[in-house]
Structures are given as structure tokens and as C-alpha cells.
Design a protein around this nucleic acid. Structure first.
Lengths: 237, 237
DNA sequence: CGCGTTCTTGACTGCTTTCAAAGATGGTGG
DNA sequence: CCACCATCTTTGAAAGCAGTCAAGAACGCG
């Protein structure tokens, strides 16, 4: 597979992710193809969902990066989770009229409606696994913010993000696209942008990562993983 | 309602919480009463669930406090969330054979099996709301660890915990039981026990809280809430 | 090419941790 | 009923990681 640092604009990456979660049949793929024919595009840095407002239609991210954020009155901001191609927005297991968090587009984002899967279909299963993974990423984010140093947080987050992008075929074992500003990375990791900058430099000097033009290279995945005891989240056997 | 700092041992608090989430009918109450007739007791400081092991039967906490924890090889530990009376353990929306996190009893805990609710029954709805609340608490924990100071974290967490206990009738507007050691509180808030101790003292000196014999008094809820912009999580209109 | 945003770096501050030790508390058995 | 022990709480002093403030450099976009 050829590695493409550019963010794809059709729905192929999103569909690839869902297919990686559960092998989809012809019917499910057709549903997804059809839904992705009617994409909605949002510029970077827009509030796609406002916290506390009624949730509208659930959506699939087709391309681009978004994030759940929580704002504080004094300007502080915390990114709760990232939303990458193939991730779902606004899926509620029950009638919950109001959005629990704001959702912000970090880059230009395209998305489409979530098709209704047949019950017990592979697609329905993929959605369920996606929800379970989201929860696993929440838990990892809590542990990261609570107990890891800045240096460790950055490593742990890079590994997690790379793994998530690989599901969608948007990263390979060594490289991942990084369209976020250091300011945004800081809001993900509970740090300041200045300290993110310094920590990235430290990682560079330690020969662990390289950066150029929106792409991060992980130069020694094994060493990085051992530094943070990285374990891939498991959702099934 | 008379306030009782003691941890109740029957299932009444747990049932009260679920009833607060959705008004239960006679049949649902009977199911819960019946299930709570067969309690299982676990001493304090026991791993109820081991991370990575197959999940067994889902359970309801009847009494006592437990927590989801993540351990690191070097001894660091992060409490991901608290599990209080009426909370559910091991409810999976899909077949997920392995536990995503370890669960540890912080006090003596009694629990029982989760009865199977009729579909669309109030009890089924209460379970769904409980799951949505759990997610809301995860998000709040992320924001707390990422962007609040130690002083703010403690306030925010006390308010959240008080509110959760009030659902079960285990706290009133001013007081909540606090059976956790400062060490454990530190692992919840991503701090050291020494700093938790100092921060509690600061709160005492500022006249915001009082402590004695396992009970915390919140002396000025309005001021505490304004210090952290506390908003109760909403799950429905 | 010019302008705004983002990145980078330095100097300094300060919140939180670390290390250490004394004091309080509570449960248990004699 | 009290002594004893383990655990937990409390406090001080010093170190360190991350934040703040500030300003110049690089980058990308129109």
C-alpha cells in the first residue's frame, strides 16, 4: 500500500476503517458508499456541534480531523478526544437530546449521515466496536493525563494516533500525518504549546521522532512503545 | 430524609439510584429486590476484575466504593473512575470478552447480578442512562486532569461525587461520606497524597470544606461550584 | 511580496513532587 | 481497658517539571 500523507477527501478511508473493525458484506458497503455520496464539508476551526445543543443527525467523518472539546470561562480548553476518518459522531445508545461536548473541526472536515445498518449485520457490529474503542481511548486519555509526564504523554498519544490512522489506511508503521498545530496538541495533552514545542524537540534530539511538512516519523516504534508500556486496546478476543 | 454517613449494606441505595434515573415500575423493582437478595461481598482493596481477563457476569454495586484503575509497571496508578452504589460493572454493548480495566474495591463492597430488564422497560432505560452518565463522568475526568489545578480538581471532584451519591440518597446538599484514603484520592486526581493533604488543608483554611471522621462537609456549595464552573451532567432534556 | 499565524527559544516563576520524619488514628489481642 | 502495631495523616525543606512572559524567526496564504 502506497503511503499518502495527504488527507483523502472521499470516503474510502472511513469505509476502510469500518471494514477493518468488522468484515463488511456487499450490502453494508453499498450502504456506506451511498451515504458517502452526499458529503457535507466544514472548514477548519468550526464548531460542528455546540455543547448543550440538541444533537442532530449522527455522522461519519469521511476526511479530516475533528475533536471533542470542553471550554472554560477563562479561555482554558481541553480536547477530550480526537475524531478521525471513520469515526462516528452523535451516536447515542438512548434518546439524549443534548450534546455532551462541543465538537470542533481541527482541519477541513467532510462527513456524511450514518446509514441504518441491518440489525446484527457486520456494519452494526462495526459501529458497536467503534463505540467500545472510543471508550477505550477515553480511558487511555485519563491515564495519560493523570500519570504520564509531558514526554511520555506525547509518545503515548503519537502511538495511539498512529494506530488509529492505520485502521483507516492513513498511516503506516513509521509515519503519520500531523495536521494539528502545537497549540491544539497542547490542548489534547493538557500542556502549553510552548512545552509541547520543547518536548517535541527533546524527542527529536533523542532520535525518537522526525518531523517535516505535516508528517511525523516514528523512528523506533519498539523503543517508544516500551517507554510508555504501550498496549493496543482490545475489544474482542 | 435523615443523613446517614454510614455505608448502607443492603441494596436500597443502589435501587434508589436506579429509580432516580428512571421511575421504575412494580415489576422492575421486584427484579432488583430479587437480585439483591443474593449479594456477593468483597473485602476492601481487592481486585474484583483483573484487566485483560474475560469479563464474567455483569454486576450492580449494592454498597461500598470501588474504582476502575490502570496500573503502570513502575508502580504508578491512575484511578479512571469511581464505582458507587447503584453503578453497573461489566455491562457491554457488544461481545467483549476482556475487561478494559481492572476494578478494585476501595472499601468493603457488596454487589449482585444485574437482572435482565424487559426491553424498553424503565429499568432498561435506567441502565442506558447509567451508561450515558458514566461516559459523561469520563469526559469530566479528562477535562479535570487536563486543565484544572490541584485545588480546582479537588473541588470539582467533591462536587461530582456528592452529586452522584445524592442520586442514591447517600449524601445530602452539605455532606458526603469519604471513605477513601488520601492516597486513593491522589490516584483519582493525578496528584501525590502529600499534595492532596496540603490542598485539603487549603480548602479548610479557606472555609470551603470541613472534614471529620470520614465525612466531608461542603460549606459553600455555590462558591465551590463557581470556582470550577460546575455544571451537572445532563443526559436528557 | 506582505501579513498573520505558527514555531522556536530564553529567562524566570511557581505549582507539584520528592524525601523524610513526626504525629494521629483505628483495630486487635492480651 | 489498654497497649501495641500498622496504616494513614500531617508537616517541612528542597528539587524539578511545566507554565508564563516575551520576542524573534519561519512558514503559509492571498
Amino acid at each position: 500500500m502506497k503511503y499518502s500523507p495527504a488527507l483523502s477527501c472521499d470516503g474510502s478511508a472511513a469505509i476502510a476503517r469500518l471494514e477493518a473493525l468488522a468484515p463488511l458484506g456487499r450490502a453494508d458497503l453499498a450502504l456506506l458508499e451511498q451515504a458517502s455520496q452526499v458529503p457535507r464539508s466544514v472548514p477548519a476551526n468550526r464548531e460542528i456541534v455546540v455543547e448543550g445543543e440538541p444533537v442532530t443527525q449522527p455522522s461519519i467523518i469521511l476526511s479530516g480531523w475533528a475533536c471533542r472539546v470542553r471550554h472554560f470561562a477563562d479561555g482554558r480548553r481541553q480536547v477530550l478526544s480526537l475524531l478521525l476518518p471513520g469515526d462516528l459522531i452523535g451516536m447515542c445508545r438512548q434518546q439524549r437530546p443534548v450534546a455532551a461536548t462541543a465538537i470542533l473541526s481541527a482541519t477541513k472536515v467532510t462527513m456524511c449521515a450514518v446509514p441504518e445498518p441491518a440489525s446484527r449485520s457486520p456494519l452494526a457490529q462495526a459501529f458497536a466496536i467503534s463505540a467500545a474503542l472510543e471508550e477505550a481511548y477515553f480511558l487511555r486519555q485519563i491515564a495519560r493525563l493523570g500519570r504520564l509526564s509531558a514526554y511520555e504523554r506525547l509518545i503515548d498519544w503519537l502511538l495511539e494516533t498512529q494506530e488509529r490512522l492505520m485502521f483507516a489506511g492513513l498511516a503506516d508503521a513509521q509515519r503519520l500525518p500531523m495536521p494539528l498545530t502545537q497549540e491544539m496538541i497542547a490542548d489534547v495533552l493538557g500542556l502549553t504549546s510552548v512545552h509541547v514545542n520543547r518536548t517535541l524537540r527533546a524527542l527529536r534530539l533523542d532520535g525518537l521522532v522526525e518531523q517535516r511538512s505535516g508528517v511525523v516519523m516514528l523512528k523506533d516504534r519498539a523503543r517508544l512503545a516500551s517507554l510508555v508500556e504501550y498496549r493496543a486496546p482490545r475489544v474482542s478476543g
